[in-house]
Design a protein around this nucleic acid. Sequence first.
DNA 1: GCCGTTTTCGGCCCGACTGTTTTCAGTCG
Length: 577
Amino acid sequence: MKLNDKAAVANALKDLGLYLQIKGENSFKTRAYDIASERIAGLADDLGQLVAENRLTELEGVGASIAAKITELVNTGKLEALETLKHEYPITMLELLKVPNLGPKKAKVLFDLLGVGSIADLEAACKAHRVRDLKGFGAQTEEKLLAGVELARRTGTGRSLLADVLPRAEKLLEHVKQAPGVKRASLGGSVRRMRETVADVDIIASAAEVQPVFEHFVKHPDVREIIGAGDSKASVRLREGDLQVDLRVLPDEDFATALHHFTGSKAHHIKLRSLAIDQGLKLSEWGVHRGDQKQRVRDEAELYAMLGMQYVPPELREDWGEIEAAREGRLPPRLVEARDIVGNIHSHTTWSDGRASLLEMAQAAKAMGLKYYTVTEHSQTSSYAGGLSLDKMKAQWDEIDAVNEQLEGITLLKGIESDILEDGSLDYPDAVLEKLDVVIGSIHQRYSQDEDAMTRRVLNAMENPHFQIWGHPTGRLINRREAAPMRMEEILDKAAQKGVAIEINGCPERLDLKAEHVRLALQRGLKVVVSTDAHSVGELHQHLPLALATARKGWTTAADVLNTRSAKDFVESLRRG
DNA sequence: GCCGTTTTCGGCCCGACTGTTTTCAGTCG
């Protein structure tokens, strides 16, 4: 069996690393599997091709040994070393590591001495008080592990949608800014890096005195319990969703380096610190030191300048090549920002499955300062979503004309979100499509097609000269539905050849294309649209920042985005051939 | 296990917090 699935290969390597940790392997060895796993997960190239051409070891962090394991995985679908370990331990062994405060060392002791090989085993052992007498454990640890069992069960994957967390995090940040003596405060961690899912919230603040800030922080009504508190860090859990929030408070002179440290990512930092060492510097949350001499760092820009590289925006700090690019001056000078966006792309009204009228949506877009608004209802095959028949579409054109008459300062563009049918054809005759300003083509059903069929379906659609924007390309729903199987590189090559633009859809659970794929598209010279796919006025506001965040994370500049252009330029640049 | 313009062997990012200890190991980010 062939396994050309980056996520599956990355997971196998990660699991292998975890098993080796439990076995007590050298931590640098287990980390090597971790690094390789992340490298594969974020890989731009086609994995099958790298294997076929024997080029895996060209990847940083992949040597002969791991290359052989990846090759085995891709060619056979299995990994002997991992299968052996899976037989050595219960199948549920790795789930134990999801319990807070239980790492590989303690898990090994629990398994070796008590036979604990699952969360259920752990619960039973704790309740029978068999854990507290083990060396290195105690009554408090036993209680913590028992509480951790509850938490691990409740939180499932443990990662929430960015959109669910971001507003709550911003609210807490505002609260922290109000605390006595706070000079500067910012979000950090994966929320600041705009990861599509996040596990917790980090807030970093500067103040002369720490305790008053902590006391103010934990009084927020959203805080359910205090998990821990030291000299510089307080951790709490929120009432809703068990979300953990860590607050660090430091002297203002340490703010920049602390913010940088707690923004991460871990991989970005590990590489950056190695670079610092090469330059005789030591980098940590407590600052930059040359010998015993602490260097003054006022902000993050100064930190990167000190290391002789371009400033790296938080969204880019993933070790996806940004450090090398920053050293060589190849980072985009400025990523796209909210102020660059002048048109709303992709939206639904009560004509199909939206919840606001055309006029209401247009007025809201105008109030946001936008200059144009594309009307793109569902097409006739999506009857479940109120897709427009030909007659209805023509009737809507009259209303669009009327609203255009009525509203000053914003232009409505006539468009459609056409289904890409099973064979790749669009949902209306060419004679209708050619009358529209904007045609988005999206897949809405028959996700079960295999990779070949799905790839052919999209390639066929791109042959249609009226197909202008590929809408929510992979159809994934984060934490709910996998991306449709397709050969993304091949399709993006075709899109580049045909002049099809790619949507970056800002629905919280779509964020589709995702950032890694956005980079692939940009590398091929493709243009993107930053879109809301809004079904209500609220979603116009909520989705745009999420689409922008995804675009930025994919290294997008204003010049790459078509809806930074005037309505006239926008429509003209969509026209093909 | 990976890596290399002082090295093909001997390093590998760094520190806070906690609970267990009586100087430290494990976990976490």
